Amino acid sequence: MRILVLGGSRFLGRHIVEEALLRGHTVTTFNRGVSGSLPGVEEIHGDREDAADLERLVDGRHWDIVVDTCGYVPRVVLASAQALSGHATTYAFISTISALDGFPSKPGTDESGLWACEPDAGPDDGDYGVLKAGCERAVSVGFTGNALFIQPGLILGPYENVARLPWWLTRISHGGQVLAPGSPTVPMQLIDARDIAAFTLDQSEAGVADRFIVTGPAGNATYGSWLEMCKDVTGSDASFVWVDDQFLLDREVGPFVELPLWAPPGPDMDNFWSASTERAFAAGLRSRPVLETVRDTWEWLREIPEESRVYGSSRQHGIAPDKEQAILEEWHKRS
């Protein structure tokens, strides 16, 4: 099959490209060419926000599958979907579970609707999840053909550019006392980017037009077991100091950002780690053990000099060492 990947040079997009090549497909990528290149693909450089670049991309071409890995603004996705309509059979859009109306305050299920957002909305018309909902609508109204929507949960794995797991692996590899947030028994729901890539291509190859929540089984790790995996694969002598959620919040520690994947309990986060995945697993989703994801991410990360590691593509992840130490000292005094 002929596959076009919008994006395709970073994290999930890169895994989709690699999986497609392993399956023997002919792959074209369309991006600005600022994040490196991959062997074995036809690279077309351009800006999806430029109408002339989109016209040049589709001129005289047809693909069996388009996978859109980098659509964040509805009106931009709408232009891409309209340009590719008639030039592809299936349009697979990588959305997010955050596009579901009310999530995570409300449960994320296959029956959940989307946040209200128009298909031609601009970048200032909502937050990440709301805009992704608008992007899904943009594909629905702009593309004639099969529309497949993939709504991932929390994605980890090699090439991670959000840098949640890479930050924890790096921090834990340094050893010593490590600030661990909340409770080690908090259940998580994690999925490897490679499993999303395989599922996306499985459904696209079959011409499926549907919407799937794609994440791991609920409780496939706990926060404690996940950090212990990081300790084991790095060979670290780290010891975890579990600090109360409210104690951290009172000291303005940022959930998800300063302590990646820390989601303090509360009504706004009640359903974050318990999304429904029945439809995806019934359709053939496979989710590898979390330990495999942690191990393979460390094997990739350790080849990058520590001074060259980047802990986030849009914002820096990880607590500052001085702040971590000050909180640990204060916690020990209190205890």
Score class of each variant (00 low, 15 high):
V34H: 12
G312T: 09
S80M: 10
S98W: 07
V34A: 14
A99P: 13
L259S: 09
L4I: 07
W273N: 12
D120V: 00
F103H: 08
P184A: 04
T69H: 03
L21G: 03
R61H: 06
C117W: 09
V294M: 07
R10I: 15
G235V: 15
D59T: 12
P321T: 08
P265K: 05
G142R: 02
S276Q: 10
I16K: 02
P305R: 04
L57W: 10
E118F: 07
A206Q: 12
V76Y: 04
L249N: 01
Q246R: 11
E303D: 13
S335C: 13
G216W: 00
W226R: 03
C70G: 02
A99E: 02
R61Q: 12
P267G: 02
Q325M: 12
A51V: 12
V294I: 07
D270Q: 07
R48C: 03
L84G: 08
R315E: 15
G126E: 07
P260I: 09
V310Y: 11
G108R: 02
Q203L: 15
G176T: 13
P184N: 06
P181R: 00
P305K: 05
G126H: 14
D268T: 13
I44K: 12
C117M: 14
F247G: 05
D125Y: 06
S98D: 00
A116M: 06
R14A: 08
F272Q: 11
H174Q: 15
C135K: 03
N146F: 08
L6E: 02
Q151W: 01
T200L: 05
G7W: 04
A206P: 04
M269R: 12
P217H: 14
